[in-house]
């Protein structure tokens, strides 16, 4: 029995493990707010959270609250679980969203049927509670 429960724990949905740098991002999602870092020196937007701006390597980044609105840049409908940890969730509607600020992020599309997914469709955030963390999903807007 013990082995079986260990095994089940091993194949649970993986949760993000916030780092000291990324913690404000995840805390924002928990409070139903999307936040991005913006560079004080070049005004570039930064995703995922970093210690330095990937546009100019400045260490001066400031967290900004944003709307989280954007468009679906691409997607796939995975008919088989992409890993055993996602068994039971198929079809997985895995998306890449481009926010208005221009950055792209990985996500899951919800409240939409697979055949209605379309590259370029406008989307807005859904704050999805997974155990003790909040993930950033999207739905059509």
């Amino acid at each position: 029995m013990k082995n079986e429960s260990d095994n089940n724990a091993l194949y649970q949905r993986p949760q993000p493990r916030p780092t000291p740098t990324s913690e404000p991002f995840w805390a924002g999602l928990a409070a139903q707010q999307v936040r991005l870092q913006q560079c004080d020196d070049c005004a570039g937007w930064v995703y995922y959270p970093r210690s330095h701006c990937p546009h100019c390597l400045s260490p001066n980044l400031t967290w900004q609250d944003i709307s989280g609105e954007g468009t679906l840049y691409s997607y796939t409908v995975a008919q088989q679980p992409t890993a055993p940890q996602f068994a039971g969730e198929e079809p997985q509607l895995i998306g890449v969203v481009e926010l208005k600020e221009g950055v792209r992020l990985n996500t899951v599309m919800v409240n939409v049927s697979p055949e209605d997914l379309e590259v370029g469709m406008r989307v807005k955030p859904v704050f999805f509670q997974l155990a003790d963390t909040t993930l950033l999903y999207f739905e059509p807007s």
Partner: peptide, 12 residues
Amino acid sequence: QTEFDVPYGNVA
């Protein structure tokens, strides 16, 4: 990737 790919199932 641990934080921003894996939790969304964008793996392999």
